[in-house]
């Protein structure tokens, strides 16, 4: 297999006495969807924060295409080709769709904003992703949760990133919107991107991931090939119950 597009080695992060991440290794390749699952407090958000440049690790190395990098901020991570869709989506509610899509990376003509080009590209981008909005000039605060998320994902695709990090993307979506979202992730993979997804939902993760990494108490507690892993195995790794064959676990795993 080719070199990983993103790799983390022995990454650690503590908040005071609490160890959120403790020696975590991650490798992500192009054309791959990696799911990160785990219980609340397992370190998913911290791991995603480190990848997106939103949190600085205390220790460990991060490399993009085998080149060591320091992800000092989300803007720096973006410049290295890592784009993120945060759980809170990080959209300004008072700005319209076009303004949010190009926020921090506006197109200019001379020294002034080029609204015409931005609006044109916004329509094209939303069309490619099949994100439907009533108008690209409505404030984002007036959109539905699914539309807002579509806008956030579309924004992450601007500037041709190599990696997209999605933090709990299905948390605020209904059933049909979740299905549409999973299709969208497959489309990203077929474009050649590496995708990292965190989720609470084992079902959603199973539907879309190639590989599943389980975090427990800040450590990697197992990595699974999504095509063969069973719900029971995943659940056992998430909860830390040793034997996957344990009847109690199977009972819980059947939801």
């Amino acid at each position: 297999m080719s070199a990983p597009v993103l790799s983390l080695r022995a990454v650690a992060k503590s908040y005071g006495a609490a160890r959120a991440l403790d020696g975590v290794d991650v490798e992500l390749h192009r054309h791959e969807v990696l799911a990160v699952i785990g219980d609340s407090g397992a370190g998913k958000s911290t791991l995603v924060g480190v990848m997106s440049g939103n949190q600085r690790p205390d220790a460990g190395e991060i490399a993009v295409d085998d080149r060591p990098v320091t992800l000092a901020s989300p803007a720096v991570a973006r410049s290295h080709g890592i784009a993120s869709v945060f759980q809170d989506l990080a959209l300004a509610p008072n700005l319209d769709v076009v303004e949010n899509l190009f926020l921090g990376a506006e197109l200019t003509r001379g020294r002034l904003l080029d609204e015409v080009s931005m609006e044109k590209q916004a329509w094209e981008l939303l069309g490619q992703l099949a994100v439907r909005v009533p108008s690209v000039r409505v404030p984002v605060g007036a959109l539905s949760a699914a539309q807002r998320q579509g806008v956030a994902i579309a924004r992450s695709l601007l500037g041709d990133p190599k990696v997209i990090v999605l933090d709990e993307p299905t948390a605020s979506l209904g059933i049909r919107q979740t299905a549409e979202f999973l299709t969208l992730v497959e489309r990203l993979r077929s474009r050649g991107l590496g995708v990292v997804v965190t989720s609470h939902s084992l079902v959603d993760v199973h539907a879309v991931a190639d590989r599943i990494m389980v975090l427990r108490l800040g450590r990697v507690n197992g990595e699974f090939d999504a095509s063969v892993a069973t719900q029971e195995e995943l659940l056992a790794a998430v909860t830390g119950v040793e034997s996957p064959g344990n009847g109690a676990v199977r009972g819980g795993g059947a939801r």
């Binding site: 990080a90 300004a92 008072n94 700005l95 926020l103 921090g104 506006e106």
Partner: peptide
């Protein structure tokens, strides 16, 4: 309304944390 500075000002007023994550 027409400069990147103005756009940043409005974004920060709307949600400063979102603006920071977007690279403002």
């Amino acid at each position: 309304r027409r400069t990147r500075w103005g756009r940043s000002v409005r974004a920060v007023g709307g949600d400063a944390d979102a603006a920071r994550k977007a690279g403002v």
